[in-house]
Write a protein that binds this DNA or RNA. Structure first.
Lengths: 346, 346
DNA sequence: TTGTACGCGTTATCAA
DNA sequence: TTGATAACGCGTACAA
């Protein structure tokens, strides 16, 4: 077992000083060709690589990005991570991932673990519990210590930092407009409780589209799903709520749902109730994941371009890290959505 | 902006030595109650936290695990990561994620980046390209440098290390036996090319189940999907291959597919060809992801318990790290599969 | 009770 | 051309 070699060991072995070795490996002109070759050959033989930790300590830079997300078993978030990885790796950065699991405490603990020197900056999406409690002190403290943060998707106006968001409002509006243009007269909305701001914006987009066409929003057509558990979708209760929605409003001929699960479940329930898709009811979801693509019929969805969001977030963060201006000029980048049409609409 | 405080700054401020501060913060009896309180109060005020990097350098331990996987936008792998995170965080470890994107080069580069001091050990699943080339030198080099590795799912017998695998053979066998018991007479297999060993084992399980029941495996019922791109499923060509399979063998009344996508696609094609599921054809897949759960009809699958695999891998790795025996006694842990029955079988 | 000195691995500056 | 020294931040054995 050949443990990792250090400069010191090479120096001892070759009977020169540590700094000579260091310089020789950097091809410094100060060192004679002779020793340079000798050192480099030896280093190559023993596969010398500088120790990242020592470099981090010296440079006060870790070349590592911390990512905190609520959940990783989730198509959107994993796409974002892929985007972050892609961009960060290209720039020579590593990515450390922490999961908040939608919990405030875990979010704080994870950030604490990483904020003490392990990383150069954060990319994060806020947990539901944090949004609910509206306690954002940990973000501000981190920023105050000179550690830049970029938020994505679930962002919050109370914090001053770079942000990358989807145009939830516009994405939803375009989707609902599509349904209206497709002759839907009674369009239901299946959304989250209002404290999840992306859900709120999408709800507003829905209403705005209706108003655009002088359609009066009907409160009874709006279902705000009660997901008390925060993390796991309770399928049975979701199905029941949607069933009640359809049974109570048989005139529904279009559905806009703020995520894939809601949309897929709506399709399932509709068909159980004897409705054909898209003939009787047209459905559009949000988030272009595997479910939408492989559903039968294929689900028309608003794609968020998760990977692009990740890349952009990484770009903003690395920009700040490398230029060391941490305090002003914050931007909010909007990544456009795209309506991907499949068979659940006409 | 209050930059992070160090021991040195506290010492200077309070006009004591650095080591006094250090000891005081550790509640050492050596230090007088007086100074202890003074120091602790000051530290608390300025929110002192020891610098992880400095600790890592000193202790030669980073308390960080490196995870290299081929792809993160993938239900199974993200579940494994969740399991790793869960266990690792509990033990005070962080998780750094690298994506090989199924490429040999990226796998090597990513490991190189992390192996130089950034982490204490690896958990990884081998990329398809690496499996194809059968070049495993980077794993051995890493191990030889005293860095422990735990492999999961896509493992390889050539490397001596701890492994966590699914019993692909048994899982497949049980699935196919189920089909046979359900009166299927002509069971097709949709699998990968043989160099993906999990596909190979599942194929063997399929054959073994047939033989158990004295059924002669029919080569024309076995489809080895040609996924040249390695990373992205080419849906159209997949659909065509499956269509040819069904058209060429109308007697097929059961399908076992080695992953979700193959299974879902098989269901889709079967129905396009006018077959009812499960009445005309019963289908079982492998990997219990969102697709299986939300498909209509729900897909019966062999669940791999990804999260448990991740937890176990983390446990094995941390065990080695903390006990510093890196060279022998390697174990291969088999995580049992479970057949989850839904509506695609009778 | 407090402080000094050293080492973790590296690089940069300055001295020889 | 080479080497010694300091510094990054911390903890600890040992000296005062």
């Amino acid at each position: 077992m050949n443990k990792k070699v250090t400069l010191k060991q090479i120096a001892r072995e070759l009977d020169v000083s540590i700094s000579t070795v260091s310089k020789a490996l950097k091809n410094s002109k100060e060192i004679s060709e002779d020793t340079r070759e000798k050192v480099q050959a030896f280093a190559k033989l023993y596969n010398y690589k500088p120790n990242n930790i020592a470099l981090s300590l010296k440079n006060r830079k870790t070349k590592t990005i911390g990512v905190i997300i609520p959940e990783i078993v989730h198509h959107f978030f994993s796409k974002v991570i892929r985007g972050i990885e892609l961009y960060a790796n290209n720039k020579g950065y590593n990515v450390i991932v922490g999961l908040s699991n939608e919990s405030f405490d875990k979010e704080v603990i994870n950030m604490d673990m990483l904020a003490n020197g392990s990383i150069d900056g954060f990319i994060l999406s806020i947990s539901k519990e944090t949004l609910l409690q509206q306690d954002y002190h940990h973000f501000n403290e981190t920023i105050n210590q000179g550690m830049p943060i970029v938020m994505f998707d679930r962002v919050v106006k109370e914090i001053n930092c770079d942000k990358v968001v989807v145009d939830d409002f516009k994405g939803a509006k375009i989707a609902v407009e599509k349904l209206i243009e497709n002759k839907c007269k009674n369009i239901a909305l299946i959304t989250t409780k209002d404290y999840v701001n992306v859900g709120r914006y999408r709800t507003q987009g829905y209403i705005s589209a209706l108003e655009e066409y002088n359609i009066m929003p009907q409160p009874n057509l709006i279902l705000k799903v009660d997901d008390e558990s925060l993390t796991e979708y309770n399928l049975v209760s979701l199905e029941n709520e949607i069933k009640d929605l359809f049974m109570g409003n048989p005139e529904i001929d279009g559905v806009f749902a703020v995520n894939e699960i809601y949309a897929i479940t709506a399709m399932k329930i509709a068909r159980k109730l004897g409705k054909e898709i898209p003939d009787d009811i047209q459905v559009i979801g949000f988030t272009d994941g595997v479910l939408s693509k492989h559903a039968i019929p294929g689900l028309t969805t608003v794609s968020q371009h998760g990977q692009r969001i990740g890349e952009k977030a990484a770009e903003l963060l690395i920009e700040r890290i490398e230029n060391e201006y941490f305090t002003d000029n914050f931007q909010t980048v909007v990544v456009e959505t795209e309506l991907i049409e499949r068979e659940s609409t006409k």
